[in-house]
């Protein structure tokens, strides 16, 4: 906890003098901790001459930012048109049923958080998914199962 606070403070120190610093700072915190703890809003606000309300407004606006720790892996499935044209709805259903969760939820073993994404720019290789930082193209339900099984073996 103390360590977390110190890390947040160091990100604040590195970013607070940038023009339009809030998003880069929030990214830095989330990249480091996996999420943005709400109890650091006050420190962020103070350093950036903002109100806590403004920080909350910004964090809650952007779907990328999360305020609670996700599962060990984050699986994003592209829901956009090109992937739909190549069968992403089946992939989506497969992911939900095999993980036993819906979008924005984490599997009971805390291994995988499932999120929707609207285009990964991999439209020539639809359907596409992103598992943590890796994009995969032309993904079949079987491939998805293999990827998830592998991910569950290895801690992120």
């Amino acid at each position: 906890m103390h360590d977390q606070l110190a890390r947040i403070k160091s990100h604040i120190d590195t970013h607070q003098h940038m023009a339009g610093a809030l998003l880069p700072l929030l990214h830095a915190i989330q990249d480091d901790l996996g999420y943005i703890p709400e109890d650091c809003y006050g420190d962020i606000a103070k350093a950036l001459n903002l109100s806590v309300a403004e920080v909350h407004g910004v964090v809650s606006f952007y779907h990328h930012f999360r305020t609670h720790a996700p599962g060990r892996h984050i699986l994003q499935i592209c829901r956009a048109e090109s992937c739909q044209a190549m069968g992403s709805t089946q992939l989506e259903a497969h992911a939900k049923s095999s993980l036993g969760i819906d979008y924005h939820q984490t599997s009971p073993d805390n291994a995988v958080t499932l999120e929707a994404v609207y285009c990964l720019g991999n439209c020539a290789c639809s359907p596409a998914i992103m598992l943590d930082d890796q994009v995969y193209g032309r993904v079949t339900p079987q491939q998805l199962s293999q990827l998830l099984a592998k991910a569950r073996e290895v801690a992120a």
């Binding site: 956009a80 048109e81 090109s82 609207y118 285009c119 720019g121 439209c123 020539a124």
Partner: peptide
């Protein structure tokens, strides 16, 4: 911010 689905030329 190439958000349009079906596009990837910027990328």
């Amino acid at each position: 911010d190439e958000g349009d689905s079906g596009t990837y030329s910027d990328r």
